[in-house]
Design a protein around this nucleic acid. Structure first.
Lengths: 343, 343
DNA sequence: CCGAGATTTGCACGCGCGTGCAACATTGCT
DNA sequence: AGCAATGTTGCACGCGCGTGCAAATCTCGG
């Protein structure tokens, strides 16, 4: 502990101090290796004294597993992404993996650079939470023996494992909720992002509405976020006929929308306006919002990721799509039932 | 690209395909190495064909720099932490480092395990955002040549680099703001976490108040978060004399507090109650809150971290504390000025 | 006390890479 | 042409570790 080598302690040094061979040190820290209790004690003692820690990088060099899993994400500070990172990293750690976080802005070049980094660091798996890596990049990762897991990037690329949430049913259910609440003038607050996952929610809602012969206004005033929801509300409620039921394809959009509707237009939620979001971020449960929304089963998703990494990878079919069902979370941003007609 | 080796491509294979020695391949991907234009072309061509990427793990084995920086964090999904992670990882990447995220629950054992992981993976630096690693663990990291950077964990341990925000002045300024707003009955909403950083805000506020001979109620009803702020408000406003000026040592606390005050007690903010938070998380700017708060200069902090990692590390003094000034962010949760007395 | 079997230990090799050193090729100048 | 200077290439070694293999040690019954 008093060594001022300014460098990492090696097994060699531990071996010298313990008076054994380097192999003995190595075996002491290798599960299932054969070491006598005596030398193990000596080695552990020496290791403790020197502050020795096995070099996982060197270990992974010969052994095939690096235990490194890369997360490719953008908008890390966004509640949804942050929650995902939180849960996934915890789960990864619980199965002995360690997470590398690659923060992109979602542009094609940055995502490409991120994917290359994952193979530079010999990550045994790549989990893509944002952006859409090109098929050739994915192919490179796969051919290098990495597992590639795309989450809610349901372009349904062949090769990687796709984990998706069933947006369609949720979109339809959102419509049913608003219908049951007696909403007559429907709107969707969407974003310009246009990712398949978000589009699916939107189109399913519209499809369900059209089956009832009802029209839906669509707002798409910017990227997926609070400010865009706010702007959408300003435009929606600045018009002659204002909506009384809004499906926001994201909780953040819903919150921006709700805040502007209430603060700038004096609209009461849910009495005059019912709003539904998606994701069930922490803020959705806050008193100020009390947002009815759909929860993505992040726990189950993380669990599935862990099981994927645990499985050999060769046994599992390469092109696999697993879908999870978002569960509706009832709160108070949707009117409980239709008002009486004369009210 | 068509190779189905199910394993990473090595420089050896590239060399064979390109018809050069492995050294040539290595030099092609090493800055400043001497390779003729001809062989470089051949190598790059072969590398592209095979999908070769330099193994950074092996590179770091002989070379001293792993370029890996570990972030030790808990409560990753919290807006403040998420924002910190976002900014720091971006900055790290911009200077060629890659971030490993170690997610702890803050318990001593988990933090200890996290610190050990950092040396297992030969991280060249450890950035601690949550939890308090024991001095001996820090010593181990330092003696192994790692940089240890503690952020807002201002126990002022000797050895690591401490980056702190000046909580004291901010706490005093918070008091001045409330005083100027004419608040007569002051309260602090704090948490049971009791980290020095949070305590500093609290004690500075109280000290400033006491210099004016004024008393301050202190609420400490749980961990640092929304629910605790909400609970604090329930207790505060359930009493006979209710506060009209509250300093919440965290934005999340402020939001919980504000929501309950408004929703459950019908209190108008800022007319009847002025609230100040701390951190300036994204939600503070939301219309529903419009929270006056203090912004931590995260950009400058990240910049400083980057410069620390760029510097040799041997030149910089080991035991260093850099402090940054939080900047007040004026919004509308504090009454602009004192009301007329007869109002 | 002896020997067969079980256990432990050390040696040596390889994992993929960077790099010093010497051999080799190229260039430019007289 | 001759020669020095410059540029390029390959060899071999080491980074820290796991592990197969054979030598060494231990165990235990006869």
């Amino acid at each position: 502990m008093e060594m001022r080598e300014r460098s990492f302690v090696t097994a060699e040094e531990v071996a010298k101090l313990a008076g054994v061979s380097r192999s003995a040190v190595s075996r002491t820290f290798t599960d299932g290796a054969s070491v006598s209790e005596g030398t193990r004690k000596k080695v552990l003692q020496a290791a403790e004294t020197l502050g020795y820690h096995v070099n996982h990088l060197a270990r992974g060099l010969s052994h095939e597993r690096s235990n490194i899993v890369c997360l490719v994400v953008s908008d890390v500070s966004t509640p949804y992404q942050a929650q995902m990172i939180d849960i996934v990293t915890k789960k990864l750690q619980s199965v002995g993996k360690i997470a590398m976080l690659i923060n992109t802005v979602g542009s094609a070049e940055e995502v490409a650079a991120a994917m290359r980094q994952t193979v530079n660091y010999r990550a045994e798996a790549v989990i893509v939470l944002s952006g859409t890596p090109s098929p050739s990049l994915i192919a490179t990762c796969l051919s290098n023996g990495q597992r590639v897991i795309l989450i809610n990037r349901d372009d349904q690329l062949s090769g990687p494992t796709n984990i998706v949430v069933q947006n369609g049913p949720a979109g339809r259910e959102a419509y049913q909720l608003l219908k049951r609440a007696g909403c007559a003038r429907l709107a969707i607050v969407s974003s310009t992002a246009g990712t398949p996952s978000l589009m699916a929610r939107e189109t399913a809602f519209i499809a369900a509405a059209q089956e009832d012969g009802r029209d839906v206004q669509i707002m798409r005033t910017g990227p997926t976020g609070y400010a865009t929801g706010a702007e959408a509300a300003r435009q929606l409620f600045g018009r002659a006929t204002t909506p009384d039921g809004i499906f926001c394809i994201t909780d953040l959009l819903a919150m921006g929308c709700m805040d502007v509707a209430r603060d700038e237009f004096g609209i009461m939620v849910p009495d005059e306006l019912s709003i539904i979001g998606f994701d069930d971020i922490d803020q959705a449960a806050w008193i100020a919002y009390n947002l009815t929304t759909f929860r993505q089963p992040l726990g189950a998703i993380a669990e599935h990721i862990a099981s994927l990494l645990a499985s050999d990878g060769s046994t599992a079919s390469a092109n696999e799509t697993i879908s999870f069902h978002p569960v509706p979370v009832w709160r108070r941003s949707v009117r409980p039932r239709a008002p009486r007609s004369g009210e």
